[in-house]
C-alpha cells in the first residue's frame, strides 16, 4: 500500500544534492510529490513529499545512508497528502527594512488577526554584515479581504520599514 511521507533534509549545501537524493529515492521505488528546496544562510534545506510502498522504518533506512553520505540530517513524517487542492493566493505582501528583531512577529501577527492565511513565505537577510537589511515576501489568502489587511499593515508600519501589499488578480483563461 502506498503512503505519503514528508522528508526533510538539512545540511551543508553543495552542488548535486537534489540529483543524488532524487536518484536514490527513485531507485528505491519512491515517487515524488510537491517539493521545496531553499538555501538558507548557506545551508541546504529541502522538504519533499515522497510516496512509498512501505513503512516509515523502511523508508528511513533507505534514505539514511544517502543522507549520511552527503552530510545531511533527515526527518521523516507520515503525512496525509492533499494533492490537486491548491489554495490560490489573492494577496502579496512585501516587507523590507533595516534588519532588527521582531519585524516578522509584529507584522505577521497583525496580518493574521486581519484574516491572512499565509500560503508561501520567504525572507532573506541582504545588505552587508554591518548594515543588514531584511526582505520578506508573503503570498496568502485574505479571508477578510485585502482592505482589512491593508488597514492592519498601516497600523503596524513604522519608520524605516517598508511594507507593501497588492492584490493578486489571477487571470484564468
Amino acid at each position: 500500500m502506498q503512503h505519503w511521507y514528508m522528508l526533510t533534509l538539512v545540511g551543508k549545501d553543495r552542488p548535486g544534492i537534489v540529483a543524488h537524493l532524487s536518484a536514490a529515492l527513485f531507485d528505491g521505488g519512491c515517487n515524488l510529490g510537491e517539493a521545496s528546496m531553499m538555501r538558507l544562510g548557506g545551508n541546504f534545506t529541502i522538504m519533499l513529499m515522497v510516496e512509498f510502498d512501505g513503512n516509515t522504518h523502511a523508508l528511513q533506512q533507505m534514505v539514511a545512508s544517502v543522507a549520511e553520505s552527503m552530510g545531511l540530517h533527515l526527518h521523516l513524517d507520515r503525512i496525509n497528502a492533499q494533492l490537486h487542492k491548491h489554495l490560490e493566493p489573492d494577496v502579496r505582501i512585501t516587507v523590507y527594512g533595516a534588519d532588527k528583531a521582531g519585524i516578522v512577529a509584529r507584522i505577521t501577527g497583525a496580518l493574521a488577526e486581519a484574516g491572512l492565511h499565509i500560503l508561501d513565505m520567504d525572507s532573506s537577510v541582504a545588505g552587508t554584515a554591518d548594515k543588514p537589511i531584511y526582505i520578506m515576501q508573503i503570498e496568502g489568502h485574505a479571508a477578510e479581504g485585502v482592505d482589512s489587511l491593508q488597514s492592519a499593515l498601516n497600523v503596524v508600519a513604522e519608520k524605516g520599514i517598508e511594507a507593501h501589499l497588492e492584490a493578486i488578480d489571477t487571470m484564468i483563461g
Partner: peptide, 13 residues
C-alpha cells in the same frame, strides 16, 4: 508580471 491560470491546466497558477 501577473498571475495566470488556465482551464486546461487545473490546480496550478
Amino acid at each position: 508580471v501577473g498571475r495566470e491560470g488556465c482551464m486546461s491546466v487545473p490546480d496550478y497558477t
